[in-house]
Design a binder for these strands. Structure first.
Lengths: 258, 258
DNA sequence: ACCTGAACACCGTTCAAGT
DNA sequence: ACCTGAACACCGTTCAAGT
């Protein structure tokens, strides 16, 4: 019987954007003191500076010169605040102003959208992780989705191809940014440069006898080139993957090209 | 001067696999009691059953009938344990036994590898999130990387194309599995079916007047078809994305195909 | 309307101590 | 070699109370 009382509490989907009152409040509503905007701004600043692991409601409150509990007047839960932070950085995405212009090249526009998405995620290394935890349907995120839809709609893929191609392209960028941010965070934590870190990892792997073959293959596949830096390698991979996906769209848009 | 003593502690990269003694210990070394294998196995079981958020060293210890501190004899830190759990599930990946066979079709093999990767990640919804947090260079993970390398090497892409194409394909699968696991976790938490949950989200978005246009576009792009279930839609997108990427490789492997 | 203090039920990890 | 108890320095969040 105790379980029955909890039943309804679990029923509501947990997201700021799905509550009755999403925080789309009018301007000039918060004259002084804290205010939601100020809280979200400080959240993004703290996340950028110290990372997701060190972020806490208590830490944020201290930053704002206030007790932790004050924050709960503006926000129901820490997760809600993080959702707001995610949409705040989604506002940095550069959207094409001619997404519906049929004379513009959808290839260039897709490259631009993928690149701005990557750049914003790399600028805020905590963002990729949060994208895997919170619902991403705030106003800025939706504006970005809308732009990607409108551009891809002009690629010549059919209606069912469009959503698949968007998944292919933007899940790739998301995965790419996630893994790259992971590596950068680990480098910072270890106090190593990215190249030193990669060298360290590669040395550790090469020591294990069962992986010498794999390492040779990696080297032959263009990984860990002695002359190029790790970041150059990642940029090269990103550019090639973009080419690959555009080529894939081109191959499928007219119909089977066998 | 106090800072100087901490300097070296931060110097080592934090990963089980990068410590001098990775846990590749001989068998029959742990006769009774706990044993690392038993701990990792219980970790995976608990993560599957209750999710990453509810997992704690104290909870795991209780499951094993032991105090939390006992675990620290086998493992340096919670993160190390999670790295071991990640590589344990990487052991479930189905590898082709003919990765080097030139008569085998690399297209089929790439599809197989991408699909087994997706399936394993979806079977363990906590795994995608951890892949964005821990270094993934355990023996099983390396064996998988090795297989992907060997197959892609036979695609006809040059050495620098190979790593880019692998990034394109497997970052996509990673992103896809992450976002899908996110949605399934939220459905469970809300006590809704996936279709009900999607309907709920779409209704909430459609209520916002500035997004009616976006929703129409989504509908026209094949999202949220009234007859198909959300899972069918996701499967369709995955299949199309796979086709797209294979077609992209085909277009680039011989050289520019303009 | 906005903010606080004390408290609850947790965390990961250290450290000295037991067997 | 293996396990424990007590303690430290944290968490997110609730709740009654202040202004």
């Amino acid at each position: 019987m105790a379980a029955a009382t909890n039943e309804r509490a679990e029923q509501r989907p947990h997201s700021v954007w799905l509550t009755g009152r999403p925080p789309l409040r009018r301007k000039a509503e918060q004259p002084a003191g804290l205010g939601l905007d100020k809280i979200v701004e400080a959240t993004v600043r703290l996340l950028d500076a110290e990372g997701l692991a060190k972020f806490s409601m208590r830490r944020l409150a201290a930053e704002l010169g206030v007790t932790a509990m004050s924050l709960y007047w503006y926000v129901d839960t820490k997760d809600d605040l993080l959702e707001l932070a995610v949409d705040a950085v989604a506002g940095e995405l550069a959207l094409p102003d001619d997404a519906d212009d049929d004379t513009a090249d959808w290839r260039d526009q897709l490259r631009g959208l993928a690149t701005t998405y990557r750049d914003v995620l790399l600028r805020h290394p905590w963002a990729p992780r949060l994208l895997g935890e919170v619902l991403n349907i705030g106003p800025h995120s939706m504006a970005f989705s809308s732009a990607t839809l409108r551009v891809m709609a002009r690629s010549g893929l059919g209606p069912d191809g469009t959503s698949g191609a968007l998944a292919s392209l933007f899940h790739f960028v998301y995965g790419f940014a996630t893994i790259r941010s992971l590596h950068e965070a680990r480098c910072r934590a270890a106090g190593l440069s990215i190249d030193d870190y990669f060298a360290h990892v590669i040395a550790a792997i090469s020591d294990r006898p069962d992986f010498t073959e794999t390492m040779e293959l990696s080297a032959r596949a263009g990984y860990a080139m002695p002359d190029a830096s790790a970041l150059d390698m990642l940029d090269r991979d990103f550019a090639f993957a973009l080419d690959l996906q555009i080529a894939g769209i081109d191959a499928l848009r007219a119909g089977r090209a066998d």
